[in-house]
């Protein structure tokens, strides 16, 4: 069987006919395997959902108890037989519970990586290289200008600013699932032990991380705080909130944004960010090319992001590569799904 008979892109997502399932489908299907909890990959309404326990829990938190007909938790390393194929889950290092999906049919193995990063993250299991014949890679940061560097150094920059401007509030835009918790963990590792404040939209997910044994120190809701008392503090909020009316409750805020996009000045400026922090939960260019090389795959399918450059690079390395025309997946910006803060926290 040729690889594209095992997995092929259709309108609903990546379809495995011999296994009878879809990976991260964008429409409701009978059986779905979900790589991780971000809303462009994990959607409600499927018949049966297979995912890691954490991903299932996060979907439940976001969509309520009836987010799927039935669920099945699969542990990292565990093999599940579905139809004619064997499916195994491997850590993707993207966010808590994120998994790459290895689909094996006969002697052919395809790995769908979902979103991944191959650098350290204290809030999730480290990325694992899975040898395969076909590797499906994301390409969110698929241009050689995206070099994320050391996340700890970016956090140092934030804390230096907090020390230099004790009368101002520091407002860090970060996606509610994964990025926010990673930034908090990095801030703690840097030795900052004062309470960190949270926008209301981050409460549930952050508490869930803590319940899974991830130490984040003392966290407080920012709601109800007096403006003057927020001087010298650090608050995390969904990116959309950091440029909205909501910020008026803070004294002369310094607006930071933790994202891989902050590497490019025009992007940072366009958002009115004053303190860009290059911290990403996606592999950077070096990470993408390094990973592609180490999987040993001879064929690379490139999906969501800057496919052109990565496909070109594969060609220069003698690898067969093609863009996978999958629609419906955003980059990190697609994660800006926090509820409107003014409504949720009116009058606070």
């Amino acid at each position: 069987m040729r690889p594209h008979d095992i997995l092929m892109p259709v309108a609903a997502g990546l379809c495995c006919k011999p296994g009878g399932f879809y990976i991260d489908p964008v429409r409701a299907v009978d059986r779905a395997i979900i790589t991780h909890g971000h809303s462009d990959h994990a959607r409600p309404g499927h018949g049966a959902v297979l995912a890691t326990q954490e991903t299932l829990d996060l979907m439940r938190l976001r969509y309520g108890d009836n987010f799927a007909g039935t669920t099945q938790a699969v542990a990292y390393g565990e093999t599940v037989r579905l139809g004619d194929v064997a499916v195994t889950f491997h850590p993707a290092g993207h966010v808590l519970g994120s998994a790459q999906i290895a689909v094996t049919h006969g002697s052919t193995r395809i790995v769908a990586s979902g979103d991944y990063k191959d650098v350290r993250d204290p809030t999730c299991a480290p990325f694992e290289v899975v040898p395969c014949d076909v590797f499906i890679t994301e390409a969110t940061f698929g241009l050689p200008v995206f070099r994320h560097g050391d996340a700890a150094a970016e956090v140092k920059k934030l804390l230096a600013s907090v020390a230099l401007f004790p009368e101002r509030a520091h407002l860090v835009g970060a996606y509610s699932l994964g990025k926010a918790q990673r930034v908090i963990a990095l801030i703690r590792e840097a030795g900052y032990d004062a309470p960190i404040y949270l926008h209301g939209a981050m409460d549930k997910i952050t508490s869930y991380y803590q319940s899974r044994g991830i130490a984040l120190g003392e966290l407080r809701p920012v709601k109800g705080m007096k403006k003057a008392d927020l001087a010298g503090t650090v608050t995390l909020a969904p990116p959309s909130a950091t440029s909205d009316l909501w910020t008026r409750r803070f004294p002369d805020p310094v607006t930071a944004f933790a994202s891989g996009w902050m590497r490019v000045r025009a992007r940072a400026r366009q958002r009115g960010v004053e303190l860009p922090l290059v911290i990403s939960d996606h592999a950077d260019w070096d990470g993408l090319t390094r990973t592609i090389a180490t999987t040993g795959a001879g064929e690379i399918w490139v999906t969501h992001g800057q496919e052109d450059a990565l496909v070109h690079w594969c060609g220069t390395q003698g690898l067969t590569a093609r863009p996978l025309a999958l629609v419906g997946y955003g980059d990190e910006d697609g994660e800006e799904d926090a509820p409107a803060p003014s409504g949720e926290e009116a009058g606070a």
Partner: peptide
């Protein structure tokens, strides 16, 4: 650097 990669990058940045 590879000229194609440079062109794509310069165009983006």
């Amino acid at each position: 650097t590879d000229p194609t990669l440079f062109a794509l990058s310069y165009d983006y940045v």
